[in-house]
């Protein structure tokens, strides 16, 4: 399978502080890559470079490449709006817009110029179905999204991404604010979504990384310590620091 994302010698500085140190790894198309590591290790920073969310922070300097289908996303010609359509992001806390469920999903396609109601209806149903939420909300599409449970809101946010037909989904601890049942639903969903999309997942929950990802990358103090098959990382990691972290003997 080909590499969808390829990160080469990526360094990132917040002012004088170096948050990523020459990180290199690749994510195959239609796979799930989990980024793990203790707080402040750079995993979320790394995730945010892929759709240039770090652009919004001042004093950020980047060296190296982040290639999406072989094209550097930091190339001056990159259309950042298009990039974020292709590479969507789900955050720690669900962030639905304060509008109806329907309008949450239709928002993106409308911004991108879709006006036809039948087409929009189709996109809404397909996206909600894709996010495993349709059956739970199909009878109340006009109600406010704020009335949904946390887990449903998070799946709504995923549906909102799917509505603009992305290629890559970035998930930054998508279950950390959810109860175990909602977490399980999101994990099931991730397994389904990888059939169509390429997923990069940041998680603090190592069991989650072990359950849902095909490959795992372990970060520590801005360095990529080890990256490989999830099976290998969790049964016989090569680096002692990885072993110490995943067995809970860290520090």
């Amino acid at each position: 399978m080909s590499d969808k994302i390829s990160i080469n010698k990526l360094s990132l500085f917040y002012g004088d502080t170096q948050a990523l140190k020459k990180v290199s790894f690749a994510v195959r198309k239609n796979s799930v890559m989990a980024l793990i590591g203790p707080s402040g290790c750079g995993k979320s920073t790394c995730l945010r470079t892929i759709n240039r969310m770090n652009d919004l922070i001042e004093n950020v300097r980047i060296e190296g490449e982040v290639m999406l289908d072989g094209v550097d996303v930091y190339h001056p010609d990159t259309d950042v709006v298009m990039l974020r359509k292709r590479v969507g992001m789900v955050f720690q806390r669900p962030n639905p817009f304060p509008m109806s469920i329907y309008d949450n999903i239709a928002y993106g396609p409308r911004v991108h110029g879709v006006k036809d109601k039948t087409v929009l209806d189709g996109i809404v149903e397909k996206s909600l179905t894709g996010a495993a939420l349709w059956d739970e909300v199909k009878d109340r599409l006009k109600q406010s999204a704020m009335g949904l449970s946390g887990g449903q809101q998070q799946r709504l946010c995923i549906a909102r991404l799917l509505a603009v037909d992305p290629e890559v989904l970035l998930m930054d601890e998508p279950c950390s604010a959810l109860d175990p049942i909602s977490t399980m639903k999101i994990e099931e969903l991730i397994a389904e979504l990888k059939e169509k999309y390429t997923i990069v997942l940041v998680t603090h929950n190592m069991q989650q990384a072990a359950r849902v990802s095909g490959e795992t990358a372990f970060f520590l103090s801005g360095e990529l310590v080890e990256c490989g098959d999830t099976d290998t990382i969790f049964t016989r990691p090569q680096d002692k620091r990885t072993e110490d972290y995943i067995t809970g003997r860290f520090g």
């Binding site: 069991q207 072990a210 049964t235 016989r236 990691p237 072993e243 995943i246 067995t247």
Partner: peptide, 9 residues
């Protein structure tokens, strides 16, 4: 404990 790595072995 959800053992990992050497613990799992």
């Amino acid at each position: 404990q959800q053992p990992m790595a050497r613990d799992l072995r």
